[in-house]
Design a protein around this nucleic acid. Structure first.
Lengths: 209, 209
DNA sequence: TCAGCCATGTAATGGGTTACATGATTGA
DNA sequence: TCAATCATGTAACCCATTACATGGCTGA
């Protein structure tokens, strides 16, 4: 029964710290932040617009961000947020203390592959090919970004996350290729020996239409 | 204004189809399913216990699963669920029609790396090393599973998802190694030229403690 | 005797998405 | 003139997690 340490820091979700982190790049409005988030951490974290605005209000209420009304003549008024010293302290604490664990990739596609036996072979292959194509496109996209930022010292850490994206995209490309190969090999085996194991839907059952 | 096609299928979340898919392996109780899910699709999808039970009830209400009360003498009574023909049809439809897109890896660790400039260098390196260690452990774990299932034809598709896990774990291992290298190189550059760019917290500001 | 398995859930909370709403300005 | 940009939000919904609750049986 160890004594609970005084809970000074309110427990906030990861999203809060993501926004707080973006504010360290300078004060911004919700609208600006949305765009900024999209092309920075957007590759591994992407909240909805309404969520972001709500998050900013929460950070303000916690004293982690300062909200300033800015009236504009030609454009709609806006609220600009900047990180406060308390906010920065909270962010640094989070960065150092929040434990990191390798999180599983949560993927609909992987789920489909797992249940692949229930799919007609052509459909399965078509979807894998589509993923392969998408992964390649994604890889190319990241490569282009890499070229544009790789020499900017100030973007060293963002650059590292980009490298992760590249590594994962590469893994995905190779894996999908491997899947296509393995399926083709299996097809061959089947034609020589046993029947395809694709389970046709039970006919005459539940055919309402 | 194209005519909306008759909505025959209620739109269910991915989780429902995951459970439905597991039921194709045979009828099971919620309790059994939980264990089964954990060691099968658990590597890329893992719902909470209470969520799973709720999901089963929903599938039952939709006519996608059949619930059977099983009274037991020595153990608590249980409810066993089996997939219905309608359930299987819905599952197959989902497998073929639900569009697949490469989903981003949503990772707290990546977020931390992005904001790495705000961390003291040793802390950053320690966390990367910890991730490297964890990724290696994960890789080994998957390797062991691979050995045990690679020759079972009935587990061909699950085997493919395992391969994905291996591919991603490998990517993570290589990436973390790369990060350590790049950081070390950078350190060297800094010692020769400019100062470290680690931004010390502003002193004297908000130091409540 | 005591942890751990078997077996099922409720309640509360909150994280996050989608849809809806508004309205002026600017450039093609 | 028409779409896009700037700018902010509310409302509704629901997916999902965590904590809580119960209680008998089994094996170390």
């Amino acid at each position: 029964m160890a004594a609970e340490p005084a809970k000074q820091e309110p427990k906030l979700p990861t999203t809060s710290f993501a926004v707080l982190g973006l504010l360290t790049f300078g004060e911004q409005s919700g609208y600006d932040l949305m765009k900024f988030a999209h092309k920075s951490i957007g590759y591994f974290w992407g909240p909805a617009k309404s969520h972001l605005y709500a998050e900013l209000r929460r950070l303000r209420d916690h004293g982690y961000a300062l909200e300033t009304q800015v009236e504009q003549a030609q454009r709609p008024d806006k609220r600009v947020y900047s990180i406060t010293p308390e906010g920065e302290r909270a962010l640094r604490t989070w960065l150092e203390t929040a434990e990191v664990a390798p999180e599983q990739i949560k993927s609909v596609f992987t789920l489909k592959v797992f249940f692949g036996a229930l799919m007609p072979r052509e459909s399965f292959v078509a979807q894998v090919k589509e993923m392969h194509r998408a992964a390649r496109a994604h890889f190319e996209e990241l490569l282009a970004i890499e070229q544009s930022i790789k020499d900017q010292e100030s973007l060293f850490f963002p650059y590292l996350t980009l490298k992760q994206g590249l590594a994962h995209a590469e893994a995905e490309i190779r894996w999908t290729e491997q899947v296509l190969e393995e399926v083709a090999n299996r097809e061959t085996r089947e034609h020589q020996g046993a029947d395809s194991d694709y389970q046709e839907p039970a006919s005459g059952l539940g055919t309402a239409k």
